[in-house]
Nucleic acid binder design. Sequence first.
DNA 1: CTCTAGATCTAT
DNA 2: TAGATCTAGAGG
Length: 183
Amino acid sequence: MTPSSLLATSAVRAAPALIGWRLRFRKQEAVIAETEAYQGLADRACHASKGRTPRTDVLFRESGTVYVYLCYGMHWMLNLVCDEIDEPAAVLIRGVEMPGSDPRRSNGPGKVTRQLGIDGKLNGTRLGEALELLPPLAPSPRLRRGPRVGVEYAGPRWSAKPWRWWRNGFPVVRPDLRPPPEQ
DNA sequence: CTCTAGATCTAT
DNA sequence: TAGATCTAGAGG
């Protein structure tokens, strides 16, 4: 499994598969521990549901493109673009684990980028340039899943989708969230 | 041009 | 539970 084949599929399939893969940036290494999928024009939680705009353009590009945007005026969100060209989809990196670092320093999307020193300059670059994606070193961990965080604005149909995954035992923020009864 | 909401985090 | 901080996108 190569980084390109991993991402050349829907975000809903790529997001759980990415857990355990490693990100390398400026000599730092981080193991992906929590992800969320944003899939397609129909997904009201996905920025691309607003259409192709200057901001969402990167989502329509080739898988392996890096999408970074500023949230709440102060937090950078790191995403990896998935799926085919012109099919907007991305996985949000919500949590990582770094050797010798308290995981509570990197268990949220804003914390991830702050910890690694990632900002908007990475937006539109491709994996392999500044940011690298490397295969797991350990066997696939057991995963847990639940609804995405902070997307209530998308309406109940989309905010209830259990499109968030994390490594069992990872100290996720908002552990109060439970998977919906059915989807 | 103005206005508003937002894929969050931290301290209170 | 509120405040920080700022920009894309929508509306006039």
